[in-house]
Nucleic acid binder design. Sequence first.
DNA 1: CCTTTAAATCATCGTATGATGATATTCTGC
DNA 2: GCAGAATATCATCATACGATGATTTAAAGG
Lengths: 206, 206
Amino acid sequence: MAKKSTDDDKSPRRGRRPGPSTTRAEILAAARRLFGTHGYEGTTLRSVADAAGVDPALVARAHGGKDGLFRAAVAWPWDPAEVVPRVAAGPRSRAGYRITRLVVDTWEDPEQRAPLLALLRSAAVSDIARTLLGDFIRVEVMVPLVRACGFDHPELRGALLGGQNIGMAMARYVLRVEPLAGLDPDALVEIVGAASQRLLTVTLEG
Amino acid sequence: MAKKSTDDDKSPRRGRRPGPSTTRAEILAAARRLFGTHGYEGTTLRSVADAAGVDPALVARAHGGKDGLFRAAVAWPWDPAEVVPRVAAGPRSRAGYRITRLVVDTWEDPEQRAPLLALLRSAAVSDIARTLLGDFIRVEVMVPLVRACGFDHPELRGALLGGQNIGMAMARYVLRVEPLAGLDPDALVEIVGAASQRLLTVTLEG
DNA sequence: CCTTTAAATCATCGTATGATGATATTCTGC
DNA sequence: GCAGAATATCATCATACGATGATTTAAAGG
């Protein structure tokens, strides 16, 4: 059936394509989508290749193997060094709401949701994901945020806040439990923000 | 190390063993351990066979394939029909604490922790796990508990509570973020219980 | 007893996965 | 304009996985 390659081509022609190449970025985008949907183990290099419309070997090499591809796919969407001081600024009595707002806004942006989902979905099996998630709480965002807001026991409160947000994300975006999954983001911030505020201010013995 | 045996090494002898067989239960125990450590995809039937000291084919068949083995491994450790009314009994002002106590007690029992870990670690990739976890919130425990305690919006509050507890478990038992991971269980109940109580009593518009 | 059923291993089968060497094409620096 | 780096596919490779048919041994039931 395939004769002349008028346009019904089936053979993608062997070497490099003319013009500037955006393939690496497309591979990354496809990987982000698939890692976010199926997690680390559930995503194969071949499925990424399919989604990106390229040869599997290219996917395997372009970012340095599957691990490298995953690392690149879950790179943090914003810079904590910039975000933490900005969110910490403001009245302490609303700090829980501001932190929750940050988390919910990030999740609600479809662009940023994929890497977070990938991280969450892979925390079970991938040491990389587990380390990144742990650092998100301990080192990058949660604990520094609590500390910057001037609350005591920043490590414990940061861990509690991190858990709170991870659980909310699991229920809303992974398990999709209704009516939580369909709840208006502002209402969600209101509710979870109040709970977070309590975690920040409740007295801790010791 | 090895028991004294005349034919001391390699050949496990072909057919059924004399005496009553506990192998099915041992396979299940090994599976629970491994699913809890590595999740669904990260656990292979061969690794379970190794851990149980048994032929892989036996593992594959004994509980009806990998799916059947997983289902058996994460069977719920207690009967919701008995537990829900018991926890619901008592003053509403302490309901959040009692619910948290139930969850923490379950997680702190090493026997019961493995299946919960397996569920949590596999929620990303396994439809079975996702369904079971969702039903835990929606149908079996959380929502019924909120309803039995007589609070309004039981679906939403149950989902929020479920998320709260899942997040706490992720941070404490999967990511093992300190000092949350090392926190005394009673102190944990005190803190998370307060947050849960708030989720039960905060006013929800609509 | 003797037949049936359950328990256990062995030997594969088909498939999928991540990786890599080989090769073809295009772009870039000099 | 040409050497070399960057892009892209093709063709495999070794490995690992879950499943299953075949066979052997022990228990159970009449």
